[in-house]
Computed example of a mutant assay.
Amino acid sequence: MTDQHCRACRHPLETGLDRYLFCSNCGSANYFSAAGAESDNCAYFNALHGDTGRRPLFQRQQFYHACEARYVRWFAAGEREGFTALLEEIEKRILAAGIAVEVGFGSGAELKRLLDAGANLYGLDLADTAVDAFRRRHPDYAGRVACGTRLDRPVDLVYSNALFEHLDRPDHFLTNLAATLSPNGVLVLRLPVITARNVTLDATAVDINFWRPCHRVLYTMRGLAQLLERYGFRIIRHAAFHYYGYRVMNRMLQAGYDDIRQVRNPYHSMRGLQSDKTYRLLLLKAFFTRTLCAEMAIIAQHGADDRERGPDDA
């Protein structure tokens, strides 16, 4: 096996497959597989988008949203306010961009909403089932989506939500991006970032973001900033939110619900959740469940002035 290096800071790592390796320099967690990231991820997402066995769990979703509202009110009101403000700024930037592209649009709900709002936005995704499903549901926007990770024209803004952590080669992504973006173009990322201190390998077994084999890197803010700066990007705004949903999914893993596709999809009919009482108890326990990661939103500018303030180390 060839030497392995941290994808964030390029620091040498110990050798290993099919487990997370923590970087002693920046703290980021790296996962290496015998199969490529595209193969491992497409297997999951093609199955997810092709799944016809799902049905909405309206009653359970009501319980979930009620608990989530209490979590925000009691524990995270200020954090949520700052995170929401940054999301609003991101949307304004997308709507104002001359040409923008969303890489990894998934279900396409956000892409469709932004297109309806007037954004000059295109969507790219590696899963052909996601592209086909979007074209079927929204034929008026069929020409706005394609398979791949790079648009064949210069763009002013690239938006990626829940993709960057899935990449084996973030360096390739950023190299292509730097060549595609117009001068002073903007990269917007949303991804889970490690915020806990002294994370142990045992703790990752019941944390939803340490998702083998799909999440190839869980960055720290220090590692993410170092990676982006190597390719000429400087983080100019960022905000974190410790999402209640991570707590719920972690509690599900602890309770033995190990089908990751069912756990990560709130509308999937869950085996073993036989009553609303069982589900409500799980939601209550989630208030006291540890998370290792927060949902992070960042705005990074290519060629940003060194005087712009970067993120604090996490």
Rank of each mutant, 00 (worst) to 15 (best):
T2M: 04
R10V: 14
T15D: 13
N25M: 13
G27Y: 02
G27T: 08
S28A: 12
A29D: 02
A35D: 12
G36L: 12
A43I: 12
F45K: 00
F58P: 11
E68H: 10
G78D: 05
R80W: 09
F83L: 07
F83H: 02
A85D: 08
L86H: 03
L87H: 11
R93V: 11
L95V: 08
A100G: 07
V101Q: 01
G104F: 00
S107G: 11
E110F: 08
E110W: 09
L114W: 02
L114N: 00
L114K: 01
A119S: 01
L124V: 03
R135F: 07
R136F: 09
H138I: 12
H138G: 03
G143R: 03
R144W: 03
A146T: 03
R150I: 08
L151D: 00
D152I: 12
R153N: 07
D156W: 08
L157P: 01
L157S: 02
Y159T: 03
L163A: 06
F164W: 00
L167A: 04
D171G: 13
A178W: 05
A178Q: 06
A179V: 08
P183Q: 10
T204P: 07
R212F: 14
T220Q: 03
A225N: 06
Q226L: 09
R230M: 10
A239N: 08
A239M: 04
F241R: 01
Y244P: 04
Y244H: 02
G245H: 02
R251F: 05
Y257P: 07
D258M: 15
D259E: 13
I260Y: 11
R261A: 15
Q262S: 14
Q262G: 15
Q262C: 13
V263C: 02
V263W: 00
R264A: 12
R264L: 15
Y267H: 15
G272R: 12
Q274P: 13
S275G: 06
D276N: 15
L283P: 01
L284W: 15
F287V: 05
T289L: 04
T289A: 12
R290G: 15
T291L: 03
L292R: 00
C293D: 01
C293I: 03
I298V: 09
I299L: 10
E308N: 15
D312E: 15
D313C: 13
